[in-house]
Structure formats: C-alpha cells, structure tokens
Amino acid sequence: MTVDVISPQIYLLCGVLLFVLGLHALVVRRHLLLKILAVNIMGSGVFMLLLGVAARGEGGIDPVPHALVITGIVVAVSATAVALVLMLKVKAATGLARLPLSGPED
C-alpha cells in the first residue's frame, strides 16, 4: 500500500514547509498582526510534523504526540491571545501596530 507509506511523509513535509513559511513571515513582515499569525503558522507546522511522526509506527497510531499537540494548541491559543491584546495596547499607545525600526531583529 503505497498510500499508507507515503502519507506520513507528506505530513512531515507540509509541517516543515509551514514552519519555514511562518518563520520567514515572522522575520520579514512588519505588521504585528502578521507576525502573530506567522508564529501560529510555525506552530501549526510543528503540530503537523508531530502528527506525521505519530503515524509512522508499526503498532498503530502513537497517542503521545496527539496529546502533545492538544497541549501545544492550548499553549499557542494562550500566547496568541496575550499577543493580540498586547498589540492593541501598543497600537493605542504608539498609534502604530508595528514595532519601531530600532531593533535589528525586525
């Protein structure tokens, strides 16, 4: 069954692509909303990779990565919520929803 052999690999590849796409956007984009979205996309990439890892075993699906993904999603939701509210406060205080240019990490 080629499909069964291939499908976890596709999850692994897509996971990597999402992670790197998110990383690139996080570095390149200036608007804070896009940066926050980029972090979420990176997270989704890692979660997809974990699910792909879970599907590779001979003895059925490994439940541990699934549990890790649930935990990871909740952590990501929490961090995203804090980041969004912080972004609104930054916008209210500086008038801009982006970081000032002084930082080399921008």
Binding site: G22, V90, A93
Partner: peptide
C-alpha cells in the same frame, strides 16, 4: 509596551524553534 511586545515575539520565535527541536527528537 513596545518592549513587552518585542520580548513576546522574540520569545515565541524561540519557543517555536525549541518545539521543532522537541518534535525532531521525538521523531
């Protein structure tokens, strides 16, 4: 507020890199 935002973004970037490391190790 700007410092907090910058700190949060840098930290989240670091967390994601760390988590990718965790996934690779588990894999």
């Amino acid at each position: 507020l700007v410092a907090a935002m910058r700190y949060l973004l840098v930290s989240l970037l670091g967390s994601m890199a760390y988590l990718m490391g965790v996934a690779l190790l588990y894999g």
